[in-house]
Design a protein around this nucleic acid. Structure first.
Lengths: 419, 419
DNA sequence: TTACTTATGTATAGAAATATACAAAATGAT
DNA sequence: ATCATTTTGTATATTTCTATACATAAGTAA
């Protein structure tokens, strides 16, 4: 039996990150699967798994999987290993949440917010809000990671908003640094549409590895999963389909200053504009949907027209990217087939058969807080990835009460590198 | 000193694939870099490297790199380790080549070809052609891998042409299987534009990790490198920008049967069509460029117009993908700025500043046989990747004259798994 | 030239992972 | 109930890899 002290065999624990990652990501959830996938010997797997179980990081689920012989015991990450903190910065609200590693909301809070506050004050308020959530909910284990969702283009690698956008004053300002100064955990930042895309992919449509998510709300944006990963482009500006221009007689003026953008023809704000011109009261996408729900013919007509405009640009995207599935979400997606039929029509009409012969175009399942959940998903995907798991286990070991410094050198030496 | 026989320490050799891959891909080309990147101990690296050097797979270059202290000796893959066989299937020719691992042409041949031959006969002819090249050139070491380039959409993972295309009779026919039956080496198949894109990326523009390659020849197509990898879409149909439609008065009929496609407005065949209508003799992209070179105003005008049309669709692609660099190649690219200016004009006019503020639009350096070289690049990238290198070393060990069977078990036991 | 720096090789002891073998457990099928 | 099958645990001897230390090599800067 390996040497153990009160907190388990820390050396074995830090080396167990590969095993932990396999279980946490769902890649291998049984001992025999771990044996195969890890390439390690049975003895080593057993030893590392024991270290993880002794440290209460991994546990055995009640259920077993049938195997033809002795049933497989299923391993899962203990929910109490830690928690995730996420924030969605909207145009007028900050939405914060504390989640379990399986993305269950444990606590949330909503704060009023104005862009004019600027990044420093906002990040401080978010940090305070996070601490309050932590205090409210008692012990939720270690902080696994922090995620922020922003309504602007984000250079993901650098963790910054890039370019002029709704987030005035945030351009090229470091977000990760200040946030990481508040908490000892990795911080991830991404654009909200990317995160919604990620959530739809991981939770509802994991089977297709190349999916296009189109968000039709007050504005229009798109996210793309390529080969199972969020596609971000060179500077995080990908998916900007709202400002693709089409020629036409009398092109409408877009809020970006150009003429004839898709947004100016089909976004919630544009439909609301047209409804107002017809004498209705409508300010945003929600108002439009309210009128559609009341069966107002003009609203329905305009929504159908918007569907065809979006269909036109979607057809271009399909020709360029060849996605395996298109998911339509956002407020206007509640208009259902009124919106979808136009998209389908144009895509199937304009694209070559190869690109569409197995292409489905579906509505996103109605669900609140997708951006927030997607943010949690991003954090968890990273934290449980092989390098993320290595970092996490190092942090867990370091946070264990008994200092490791007074143990013999050998106990800490063999720590596997991240890559 | 490790036990050696005439062919070196085969056990150490098979385990040396990670080291080999690091050197062959250029990731780490010195002993000290290998130490860092591999995460192995100095002793292990030395031992494996010695095995690779003893087997004549790796050698030391004449040059050294300055380091501040003793200069670093540079390690390279020996050119004689093996050769690559590639074939480019065109619409009327088969172009075959035998290349060194650094993509130098050692021998080539061109065969006449008609699509009507069908896949089986064609693949057999290619195999015969390959064998002839091998015979002509004497000993070039082991066959590292085979690559095929096709002018049609290819499902890369399955190694098949998909959908109706120029390659009649090839739809969903297995290509890898028959080819692999002829040769004991991995076979890779991809679309020609993807391969041209790969070559431009790896050889000329490796610095940008997200590049868009637009091929403007008799037809129009695009390839995309996303995060350093060829982007293929769900079914290999990505990059089909030639058949995106624009509305206009009197849209021209495309050869695909639709109205108003980009190809029908701006491809070599369309410009030739328009030139013929003006009384000139022109059949294809080469004829168009010949007239442009003769400074025929009508030809120049049409090429400029084509540039703007392509610019229109390129602007859409930029909004969707946010590439870091656009490379324009193909026959019409020889028209230089006559073509490029229109593309630049529309892209900078239509896209948001963020997407274009660091975006360059450049001509592909003029070079023959890009598709063939790209095919070689694809093979080499795969064969020298970590799993590819593991396979390769296994094949090399297996091909060594003295059978390993009569050696003690222990000598072969510890072979590292691929992953 | 001399000092400094980095690269590289190797001996040694010890730690970690492996292969192999055996054993027991837990289920379904006969 | 018995058998076949798969999962899981563990002891042993061995192999492989590591850490450490020392030595040498081959440049640059003073």
């Amino acid at each position: 039996m390996p040497i153990r002290d009160g907190v388990g065999d820390t050396a074995a624990l830090t080396n167990a990150s590969d095993i932990f990652s396999l279980i946490a990501t769902g890649t291998a959830v049984s001992r025999s699967a771990l044996l195969e996938r890890s390439g390690l010997s049975r003895v080593t797997v057993t030893q590392r798994l024991n270290a993880l179980i002794a440290a209460d990081l991994i546990g055995e689920a009640a259920e077993t999987l049938p195997s033809g012989g002795r049933p497989t015991r299923v391993l899962t990450v203990n929910r109490q290993v830690g928690h995730v903190l996420v924030a969605n910065i909207g145009e007028s609200h900050l939405h914060l949440a504390l989640m379990s590693p399986d993305l269950m909301m444990i606590a949330q809070s909503t704060l009023r917010y104005e862009v004019a506050e600027g990044p420093t004050a906002t990040l401080n308020r978010i940090a305070d809000g996070f601490r309050q959530l932590q205090a409210e909910t008692g012990d939720n284990g270690i902080l696994l990671g922090i995620g922020l969702s922003l309504p602007a283009p984000v250079d993901y690698k650098r963790g910054r908003v890039v370019g002029p956008s709704v987030m005035r004053g945030w351009d090229d300002v470091d977000i990760i640094g200040p946030m990481a100064a508040h908490f000892d955990a990795p911080v991830y930042v991404d654009n909200d549409v990317n995160l919604m895309t990620l959530y739809e992919y991981r939770r509802h449509f994991q089977l297709a590895d190349d999916i296009l998510y189109i968000k039709v709300g007050t504005g229009i944006g798109a996210g793309f999963i390529a080969d199972g990963k969020i596609f971000r482009g060179a500077h995080g500006a990908s998916g900007d389909i709202g400002h693709i221009q089409f020629d036409s007689d009398d092109p409408p003026l877009c809020r970006c200053g150009k003429l004839g953008c898709v947004e100016a023809r089909a976004a919630g704000w544009a439909i609301a504009r047209d409804l107002r011109a017809l004498g209705f009261k409508a300010e945003n996408a929600r108002d439009v949907i309210a009128l559609v729900d009341e069966q107002v013919p003009e609203a329905i007509m305009l929504l159908r027209k918007a569907g065809r405009v979006i269909g036109e640009v979607t057809a271009d995207v399909v020709s360029i990217l060849n996605p395996g599935l298109i998911v339509v979400g956002g407020t206007l997606a509640r208009g259902g087939d009124f919106l979808l039929s136009g998209i389908r029509e144009l895509v199937y009409q304009r694209c070559l058969p190869l690109a569409t012969r197995e292409l489905n175009i579906v509505l996103a399942p109605p669900q609140a807080d997708i951006a927030l959940l997607g943010t949690g998903q991003l954090v968890v995907d990273n934290v449980f990835s092989p390098p993320g798991a290595a970092d996490l286990l190092n942090r867990i070991v370091a946070s264990m009460t008994r200092p490791v410094a007074d143990r013999p050198e050998g106990a800490r030496r063999r720590v596997r590198r991240a890559g």
